[in-house]
Amino acid sequence: MGAFNLTPSDPSTFILNGIPGLEDAHIWISIPFSMFYIIGLLGNFTILFVVGKESTLHKPMFLLLSMLALTDIGLSTCVMPKALCIFWFCFKGITVDGCLTQMFFLHAVAGMHSAVLVIMAFDRYVAICEPLRYGTILNNARIAKLGLVGLTRAVFVVLPEPLLLRRLPFCANQVIPHTYCEHMAVVKMSCGDTRVNRTYGLMTALVIIGIDLTLIGLSYRLIIRAVLRINSKKAHWKALNTCTAHISVMLLSYTPYLFSALTHRFGQGIAAHVHILLANLYLLVPPMLNPIIYGVKTKELRDKVGKYTCRM
């Protein structure tokens, strides 16, 4: 067991402490966490499988769903295997390089996830405001290019975070009160000047989330304006109903993310275990619910999933 109980005195190792104050309950907490993770993987891999197999689903909307499924898998997989090792086996040690790598992939995938939500908002705008030109404005090739732009942005905006952290000295007490390496949690472990890191981390959040929420808000402003021009109330609801799945996914994704990010910087009065629990649920609940939301709201996808389910 000596190899498992790594001490914070090792300068090349951080200690991920799990959920502070609830260490005795780690086993019990791991039960819903692992269930959420497995359900999320099954749901998102089902979407990828069905969309890949069915040629009738090779359309922009379902390509976007596949992108969303990939980012959902990435978000939860970046943190849950290590978190479950902490809960089940007390494998709390993680090298500094491993920690920074986990942090990079987590934030890069989160940035890509946000970009996919922006493209989906644009997709809804074109479908409602320019329905006759939908096929010419949005096709699979254009969606793929937009996805590549989102991925490039996420990588280049997030990459400086671990590089800036790598140059800092870390204090003797290298215990991170978290289940994964989140940027601000690692910044707080340094005994050097972290002003550049804190400023860049805040700028990253503003660039990615601020710009993306602005673009999404603009898309829905144009959608609402177009819908209000329709005389029929039935047509109003039919048009808006096509956006409910996207709106639900956005609320599930952005609300806990903003809460977690703001708590790290300004939420000193919030109990640590509450913050860490919500930070983990943010990476588990949306990936679990997103396939269900789109499966329920998208008849074409629901029918194809039912087709494969009945074969089993």
Rank of each mutant, 00 (worst) to 15 (best):
V116Q: 13
T179W: 10
G74V: 06
M120Q: 15
M80D: 03
V296Y: 10
S114N: 13
C310D: 07
K82N: 02
F62W: 03
F14L: 14
V149K: 03
F122K: 15
G217I: 04
N290K: 12
P131G: 11
L57D: 09
L240V: 12
L16H: 04
L117R: 00
P162G: 07
E300T: 14
T71V: 12
V118W: 00
V149Y: 05
A110F: 15
L6E: 15
Q102D: 11
H264W: 12
I29R: 01
D72M: 07
V196K: 11
V109W: 10
G210C: 07
V196W: 13
L289Q: 10
G295K: 00
G217D: 05
K53D: 01
A69R: 01
K82F: 07
I292V: 15
L164Q: 06
S248P: 05
I276F: 00
R166K: 14
L70C: 06
G306M: 08
R302F: 07
C171F: 01
I270A: 07
A141Q: 11
A245W: 05
I15Q: 11
A115W: 01
N197H: 08
F89Y: 09
F104M: 08
K233S: 09
N173L: 04
V296D: 04
R153L: 12
Y200G: 10
C99H: 08
L283V: 10
V51E: 00
L75E: 00
L22G: 02
D123I: 02
P81N: 13
Y220A: 08
C85R: 10
L117H: 00
C243W: 06
